[in-house]
Computed example of a mutant assay.
Amino acid sequence: MAMTIDDQLREILSSALGGHASMSATELAQTALRVAVLRDDPLAESWLRLELDGVSRSGPKSPEIAQCHSRLAALVGTAEARVQISAVVEALIARRSAPLNGDDSVQGQSIGELESLYLATREIHDDPITPGMTPIDTGLASINRDKTRATTTPLLMQQGLIIQRIRQAAYAYLVRVESEIVRGQLVPDTIAQGRAFVEASLATRAPDALEALASAQDRLAQGDRESLSHAATSCRRAIKALADALYPPSEPIIDDEGITRVMDDEHYRNRLVEYVRSNRGKSTHADLLASNIAVLGTRLKSLDDLASKGVHSEVPTSEADACVTWTYMLAADLLRVDKETSGHETQEATPGGS
């Protein structure tokens, strides 16, 4: 039987936390990133990618990190996302700030580069005096070595401190995730908050979509082959019901590229893409999604293909779980646009709140 994502997480955490002492900081951060991705934790994923990729002076603009920020905004709202992103960026800057000779600049290298630099500096620092030289040459070599060590010792302390801070941050994240899973919290707070927002919004805007998502969740929990297939098809029903509520079937339209797009009942993916496109300039979140409309179309197709598997073949647990999670994520994205453009106020629920 295929492992569930929960099983995978427990296995990864057990291995990493049991053997962390022998892992490099890079390996520990890579493991933490894998956990964040499996857990759909966009906030942790964003700062761990920065640690592993390095901090660009022009800012964190990689497509992966931009997508993390967009997902976080869909889950918790733009304002709250900015607060959370600001907090993790400030923490990252603090980890990478180690003043040396009055220089308080941030070390922006990737953690792998920092570790390589540390090893190279250590090699220079520990370079021994060549044996067999004359007393005068040995004395001069000793003086030069002392000068070199006077320079490299502070560098080693600075580099080692930064590496240790990053290592501790990755380790602390793994410990926190393990603690949450042991307590039965299988998803991060951001995911729980996002799902609460989606469910509250769908109750008003698209009750049929909410019913389909609830059915998908129930089927996923049952876990047998037939239930997993039904979970996937329920996700497809939820997506279509949301499309019907946000952009009902209509006459064909001509898009920005001059291509005629069918907007009938069957082509609900077209309708959702056009819904986002038509709300550019009216919604911050629509602008975010529309900035890469091709990615949105690909997401819709991939999710639709995954959901459609339930009709034709056996669906593995991991795929059914991913299908439900990404249906929630897609709904959150679209419902944020709806909230900003239609004035549909939905009280933001907090995990565990009433």
Rank of each mutant, 00 (worst) to 15 (best):
A331K: 07
G77E: 03
S278N: 12
A231L: 03
T153S: 15
E45D: 03
I166P: 00
S308Y: 09
V187E: 05
I12C: 04
L335W: 04
T350H: 14
L52C: 11
Q164A: 15
E314D: 12
I65A: 00
A170S: 14
G102C: 02
T204I: 11
D256F: 12
S302M: 10
P128K: 13
S15V: 01
V198Q: 07
L155M: 15
A331L: 09
L92R: 03
S105F: 09
D208H: 11
I239H: 00
G297C: 04
N270M: 06
S46F: 01
C68A: 12
L296F: 08
N101S: 13
T260L: 07
A216R: 06
F197V: 01
D224M: 06
L155P: 03
K61Y: 10
A150M: 12
P154C: 09
Y173R: 05
R336P: 08
H344S: 11
K240T: 02
L117Q: 10
M263P: 01
I111V: 15
D6Q: 11
M263D: 00
D264A: 11
T233H: 02
M157E: 14
G19P: 04
I239G: 01
G343C: 05
L92F: 06
S86M: 04
R219W: 04
P252E: 12
E266V: 10
Q193Y: 06
T31K: 03
D127I: 03
Q164V: 04
T204P: 01
S354T: 07
D224V: 01
A238Q: 02
V177Y: 00
G281K: 07
H344D: 11
T260S: 12
G258L: 09
S58G: 15
G77S: 11
K61N: 13
M133E: 15
S142R: 14
T260E: 13
L220M: 08
E345K: 09
Q185V: 02
D6S: 13
T121N: 14
V88K: 10
E80T: 11
H285C: 05
A73N: 02
R261G: 01
L289R: 09
A349W: 09
L242D: 00
S97L: 08
S70K: 13
Q164F: 11
F197L: 06
A169Q: 03
E178W: 08
G223D: 00
R236M: 00
R205T: 07
G77C: 08
V106P: 07
V89D: 07
D224A: 11
R280H: 06
V262R: 12
E113T: 10
D304A: 14
G77W: 03
S318C: 05
A320P: 03
D146T: 10
Y247A: 12
H267L: 04
A331Q: 05
Q193M: 13
A209R: 07
T204R: 11
S105P: 07
H344L: 05
I239P: 01
Q67D: 15
P154W: 08
Q159A: 10
I129L: 13
M1L: 09
R225I: 09
C323N: 08
L155R: 14
I143R: 13
M1S: 12
